[in-house]
Amino acid sequence: MTTNPRTGTRDDVTQVQDDRADVRGDDLLPGPAVDARDQVVRGRGSRIAGVVITAFLGLYVIWTLVPFYIMITSSFKASDAAFALPPEGDWGGAVSQLFVFSPTTEHYRGLFAQGEFERYFTNSVVAAVASAVISVVFGTTAAYAISRGRFRGKRDLYFWIISTRMAPVVAVTVPLYAIFKNFALLNTLPALILAYTVFNLPFAIWILKGFFDSVSYEIEEAYMVDGHSRWQALWKIIPLVAPGLAAVVVLCILLAWNDFIFAAVMGGEAAKTLPVATQGLKSASGIEWGQIMAAGVVTVAPMLLLGIVIRKYMVQGLTMGAVKQ
């Protein structure tokens, strides 16, 4: 649904002049023809303001990207010598140190040579995907019911769901650790999957409810009047929330993949995941920064790719649906 930001009106309400079959091309392009920025008549000093804005944004981008750059380059730097810092104040030396080096994949090879790192990677994938699937399946049905239903206690149900999502991770870990120990689930992947579901299920319900809310119930009614049963009508509107489903799957995977506490406490060696393994490299004899950075890249890269795929819904997800784009 498009909304004209200048007038706040909805196009499909105002744009009704042409209703005949012989539509003109411009009929298909709703929305403002005028760039909002052009509305402001630029005053004196706006050129300076423009330079300042660009400079600030540029600096911020550098501040954001430098750690990524250093992480990636360091993961390809070979020896300790390549890691050495120039003398303090030697900016020229710093530049050459940062940009000129002969890359090597030895850290990556080292990681996987131990034979365990693939397993950690697999653990991460299994735990994250399983929890995401469970959360989305149960979350979709519940979100639909909450979106469509009117029942007593709905507000309380809301609150319970969202407060579960916002509970401190460590506070949840304490009782889960005791419970999983009783059920002999410690150090297994199912323990991790269940633990991630504590946060992912309420998250999925919450976000998907927002997606169902934006699908008019009249569409389902239209299907029913057309001759579909209620269940068929529900099934038919699933494609309308498909982007939401995809986004929620990715966000659930992201949350589980990036978790450290649950996996550190309840995963043990058998269900060790990438973040725990990466942190674990530190405590080994001496800190091998090259290898830690390589492990970091392996941990972060898949999430960066997924995040860019659902970029549009990322913010909505990270803000619990408070922000829609």
Partner: peptide, 20 residues
């Protein structure tokens, strides 16, 4: 009777067209 068994057709205020 369920809506689908009534053989009645309806135009909705929101039109309720199937977006996909």
């Amino acid at each position: 009777l369920e809506p689908r068994h009534r053989d009645i057709a309806m135009v909705f205020e929101s039109y309720a067209l199937y977006p996909t």
